[in-house]
Amino acid sequence: MRDFWNTALRDLGKIGIAYISVTVGVWVVFMIIIPQLIMFDYSLRPMLPLRELGGPKDVWTLKNYLVFFTNRLHMAIFFKTIWSSLIVTLVALSICYPIAFYLAKVARGAKVGLLMLGLIIPYWINELLRLFAWQIILADMGILNQLLIFLGIIADPINFRMGNGAVILGMTYAYILFMVFPIYNVMESLDKNQLDAARDLGASWPRIHYKIVMPHAKPGIAVGCTMTFMLAAGTVAAPQLLGSPSSFWFTQVINTNFECANWNLGAAYATVLMLLCVVFMFMMLKLFKVGLKELTQ
């Protein structure tokens, strides 16, 4: 601790230390701790008319959480959200792993830059607008249906937005970068000679990926999966814009609660969702045998 303090003093000076402490402190306290505590407090109180706030009925209770655990529809939506987010994560992983490998170990020079640009350009446009674009593509008389009809593959337009398909597609598209970059980053640091060595020793390509590339890329895969899962489970835009009544997302339930002025129930549901994400993160760490420290690299 003393060493840490001395090094910091030497490198940053007193003003530097004060500046960093204050900014980080403000950020942690006002952006993370206080809002979460307020939400948590809300979630533990019953919804009351204004005049009864602070009165004898305004006490901490687990009633809001009980509502969640006894409402079968909301439970079903919750588990469906987990399941669909897992699918989004898996689809994104299977698309992004080859992209990341190609970018990190196969492509050279200008090609890398071009591909990177191709990946990033869509992100210059707001997420909502991108989702609207998918709405247009997938609409009953949208581009995709018109193309398929023009090519004579189908006679009548398909309703692509039935079920979860459109939402999963839209989310996968929206979160590709969050999967590609962590994996790309770790793959970059893989020594290409190791691939050559494995090849030279007689390994096939699937084998090289399984034995050499994947173990090396594990921290990146864990980060990518965690981020994608959290984003997918926590977004409200994609299900709202691309979803159908049958693809109701848990975030939409939370949103409805807030819109119906039942902040307390909404806060309880939001806490449940946050707990889910934390649990998922630790499960990923366990699954990939990665430490919290490696995750942040």
Binding site: D191, N193, Q194, D196, A197, R199, D200, G202, S204, K211
Partner: peptide, 18 residues
Amino acid sequence: SNNRPTAMIFQNLALFPL
């Protein structure tokens, strides 16, 4: 290279660190 009767020792050895 995976089907040749050769084996290579690399300049940086390229051992598998994991």
